[in-house]
Each structure stands twice: as structure tokens, then as C-alpha cells.
Amino acid sequence: MLTILLDGIAYGMLLFILAVGLCVTLGLMNFINLAHGTFAMAGGYLTITLMQKAGVPFLWCLPAAFIFAAVLGLVLERTLYRHLYDKTHLDQVLFSIGLVFISIAMVDYAYGANQQIVNLPDYLTGRFSFLGASIGVYRVFVIAICGLLVVSLQLVLTMTRFGSRLRAAVDDGRVARGMGIDVTRIFAVTFAVGSGLAGLGGALGTGIISFDPTFPLKYMIYFLIVISVGGTTTITGPFLAAILLGVADVAGKYYVPAVGGFIIYTIMVVVLIVRPQGLFARAAAK
């Protein structure tokens, strides 16, 4: 029971780190980026490559994955994505699905369609007993790292100048522009950081989820659930949604494997209908 809860929380926190960039993209530029998982995949495969081919220690792979995905995000944002902000949502969907297909094909070509497994360092494997429950060390590690990230994200958003500008831009881009905030630059930076976090999430995820080239497509749905249930106006909303989803998914697969997916999708549709702005979102102030 506790084991499942903790596994679920670890998984949920991971989902949050993976998806948080997407929340900001959608909230800030009203841009539907279905290719967000590509950045996570980039981080994941970078970790796999570095560890398997170059023998780089796992802990060094984490910042490397962040930087790699962030740079990738920045480059794509400056070259391709920025042309899409004023296009229709349909165009954005098509464009980003196109990117997903390209990335899947490239990874498939380079690594093959097999699932990739990473050998975690010894100090992160194994289990210990706590309150009678068997707990995986790596789960605790993931929770600690993700928790640290969540707290620092929240601090950056609430305490720094950049954070307040970002929040202003999310609330009303036009007003923020009018106040002289450089929304374009904020977005480029945020996009890069969001992509980087996804990459970091991907690197962390190598120890929990199996990586194959269809990763961006498979996890796209999870990301979309996180943001549609959590809303895009805060980061606590998606955070709670991600934890909920993580726990529900792990518990569902364990207790009721037959209907787990069914329940999650049904909840998602119901939330979308009843509260289209997200379950945990502030009521839209108008």
C-alpha cells in the first residue's frame, strides 16, 4: 500500500517535471505543443548513450540532459516554433505532430525500436524497509530531486523579477507587452527551461519508465491530461494533477489492471467538460 503510494508519487512528480514546460507554453503563448515529449526523449536517450557508450556516471548525465534538451528547445524555438504562434491551433497540432514523427523516425533509425535499459549505479538501486513497506531507493531519489525542482520553480516564479514578469505575461500577454515586458524573450527562455526540465525528467525517467522511440507519442497523452486537469494558470494545479495521475496510474495498474486506463480517461473527459479551465485552476477572473 505505502509502496504503491510512494511509487505513484515518484511517478507523478516525474510526470510533473516532464510536463511543466508544456503548461507554460500553453499558458503563455496559447501554443499547443504536442512535441514536448520529444525533449524528454532527447534527455532520456542522451543519458542512455552517455552511460552505455561513454561510461559517464549517471549523476553527471542529469545536468547534461537538462542542457542538451534546453539547447535543443532554444534552437527549435528560434528557428521553427516562433513562426507558429499566430497560426491556428490546428496548424500547431499538425506541426508538432510532424516534429514528433521526425524525432521518432530519427531515434528509431539510430537506436532501433527496442526498449532501452539503463543500469543505474548501485547506490541508487535496491530497496529498504520503512514502516513495513518495501521502498525502492531510486523512487526516493526521484522524489527528492523532483521535490527540490518543484520548490525552486515555485521560488523562481514567486520571488524573482523574471518570475513576476513571466506570470504577468501568462495572465495577459498584451498588457505585459504594453508594460514593456519583452514577452518574446521571456518565452524563448521559458521554452528552453521547460524543454530542459523535460530532458532532465527524461534522464531521471530512464530508471522508471522504459524508453523506446514511440515515447513522445505514448506520453503525449499523459502530459495533456496533466495540463488539462491541472490548468495552465498556476504550477500547483498541474503539480497536484500530476501526482494524482501518477498515483491513480500506478494504483490502477496494480489493483484493477483491466479498467485502469478507462477510469483515467473518463475522469479526464469529465473534468474537461465540467471545468474546462482545469480542476485546480483559479476561477477565471474577468
Binding site: H83, L94, F95, G98, L99, V100, F101, I102
Partner: peptide
Amino acid sequence: ITPQYWQFWLGVTLVALVL
């Protein structure tokens, strides 16, 4: 030719179509 080939060009076509 190969399935990846198809998927790659499908992706490129989509991106080009939109842009």
C-alpha cells in the same frame, strides 16, 4: 523501404505543409 523512412518524411511533410 523502411517504416522509419515513411514516418520521417510524413513528419517533414507535415512541418513543411504548416510552414
